[in-house]
Amino acid sequence: MVSVAELGTAKKNTWCPGCGNFAVLQAFKSVVSRLGLEPWEVVVVTGIGCHGKIGDYLALNSFHTIHGRVLPLATGIKLANPRLTVVGFAGDGDAYAIGIGHLPHAARRNVDLTYVVHDNKVFGLTTGQATPTTPLGMRTRSTPFGTPEEPINPIAAVLAMGATFVARAFSGDLRHLEEVLERALRHRGFAFVDVLQPCYTFYDTYGYYRERVYKLEDDGHDPSDWNEAMRRAREEEVTGGERIPIGVFYQVDRPTLLDRLPHLSGVPLVDRPPRVDVAGLLERFR
């Protein structure tokens, strides 16, 4: 089993002190270690944004892709080699602005991978512009008069898209974040985790969340009940921000894309010979 320390690298960390990304990094290393995964059997796919550096800080296979494209890249990797544990990390700009077009399709396909969104409700790396989860009216460098657009509700949206695992965690509660990530990695299918985290430099929300979050599992939530999951997903809006649930909203067992493609089960594509016999296919053109 690989230790948490062995999962780190010598790369100098350039996240701002106090950044929520540290908690995600720490929690993920713990989970990889706890699950007994071999480092070379895990692939991390990261998008563009501060979160995207996480690959450099992990002694794991990684692919730092272009802005918004974590999901299709991760999907291609998993379909090619299902033995790999594939985990995508994206920011809220990455996942909900430029890359949101991939989200419903990842949910529909239900490829066995985990998608962790570092949701700090602001673009940090490009120095503080609004994202789709920025609260209405918030002033940022790109919205000096306040954002005029309603924020999206990622949990409700992904529930509606039909994802088989939908969860939220808070970077200020490391142990709970670890539990949620572990359940996500153990889920067979597309596991979505929205991580509420502050951007210490551009949008510090530590105190705000700490006063409002509560754990679904402590509140008797049944994660097999989609309607109840949707009600809880809207709780923050409905209560005017009084109560913000974290934990697993919804989980269901459904066949993955590979389960539905029997010709791809068995020998992984990567292990098949790099040559297809086309002699028979060519005969049909005579």
């Binding site: 692919f63 272009i66 494209r69 890249l73 990797i77 379909l79 080699n81 077009g101 399709h105």
Partner: peptide, 13 residues
């Protein structure tokens, strides 16, 4: 966009 990136993921694998 998804097509070219997905193929890239499979190729990396």
């Amino acid at each position: 966009i998804a097509a070219v990136v997905m193929a890239t993921g499979a190729a990396y694998a």
